[in-house]
Design a protein around this nucleic acid. Structure first.
Lengths: 193, 193
DNA sequence: CTTTTTTCTTAAACTATCTTATTGTTCTTG
DNA sequence: CAAGAACAATAAGATAGTTTAAGAAAAAAG
């Protein structure tokens, strides 16, 4: 049997036991995606957790004026899902789209609940995963309510040095909450000193 | 034995069984706090989860210029903690302070881990609690990167109608990421139409 | 390897938001 | 209830960030 990257990833948090591995193993769906493919669109209910094996995805909202606002990027070993839509059975307002060709592993909603019901190790692992995501989100909120575009951009570069080489400045601007034009000015100002 | 508000609160998510109730019951510390008391200050490690029985608290950062930035309010039945400091054993950068006299219940870090180790129902409940907090935070991020102070203020009023009567506009301004002066202008503009 | 699409840069005019300062009002606390 | 502290409103001037538009550069797709 080939090694499952999700199991490997869990081992960084709380390793699964044999029973947990067994019930997980045949509940994973593998998908290969081209660039600019969607795994979630507005009005759909998000019924999956997706784990990125290779590639890069973004989750974003499009506002009334047609502007995109990036909520999250996901690269290798990251999870991505619209948890609001997933847990509250609501239609999503978000897109999840590949920025690069990608290979992902999905667990469908029913199976996620099956896992929760049949081994506490899944509550444990997903608790830790979302706690970490929560902590990062909190830092991001603090930044957006307290600092300038320049600060936020420099922080982004420092925090995600690899990511910033893989995606366009337009995507970064949308993530930090600025226009690409203004980000371009900020970048020039930084370069000029 | 008097009813424990934490157990009651868990019953909204995933009710505890007898064993879980038993191990929880003598691990709760009750505290009465006056207005403007602190349960966390920068440099300290956050070693507790705090559940608000009565009253209102805020968690905030003070930046280099001395400005406060509110990350979270907590009222009746809310949990508040600096999870980053708690889980990563790092000194906190945040204050947690009462805005009103309060009664809280705390579980110390060692006891939190004891609970996780001795009943999966705590992983379950805290997973659900933090998932909900994560979903709310995500909406807040979307707002702050995509809409104006006016939009954010109106959303705050709609979302926390009770809270907005209990706290000052300065606190609201600090939460939505605006100056009190500008919020005052926005409020006038809204009132004038 | 050529065409098409996307991205990056620049700049001027505009708008949202901040800063500072002042004053009256409302809470809090002794 | 009196004094001090915190809060709310207002306004003028300053700054950060947006909008629009256009051209050059780079990347993606055929």
């Amino acid at each position: 049997m080939k090694i499952n990257p999700i199991i490997e990833s869990f081992s960084n948090y709380w390793p699964l036991d044999d029973k947990a591995v067994e019930i997980l193993n045949n509940r994973i769906i593998e998908k290969k995606l081209k660039r600019k493919e969607f795994i979630l669109k507005p009005q759909e209910e998000c019924n999956h957790f997706s784990f990125v094996v290779k590639g890069c995805l973004k989750m974003y909202k499009v506002d009334e004026k047609g502007n995109q606002h990036n909520l999250q990027f996901a690269v290798e070993n990251n999870w991505i899902s619209d948890y609001g839509s997933f847990y509250n059975q609501e239609p999503s307002e978000l897109y999840i789209e590949t920025l690069e060709p990608a290979q992902i592993l999905q667990i469908k909603k029913n199976d996620v609940f099956f896992l929760y019901d049949h081994s506490p190790l899944f509550d444990r692992n997903f608790r830790i995963i979302i706690e970490n995501a929560f902590i990062e989100q909190q830092k991001r909120i603090l930044q957006t309510i307290s600092s300038t575009v320049e600060d936020r951009y420099l922080y982004f570069l420092k925090k995600y040095p690899n990511l910033s080489n893989r995606i366009s400045n337009i995507q970064i601007a949308s993530y930090i909450g600025a226009t690409p034009e203004f980000l371009s000015m900020v970048r020039k100002k930084i370069a000029d000193r």
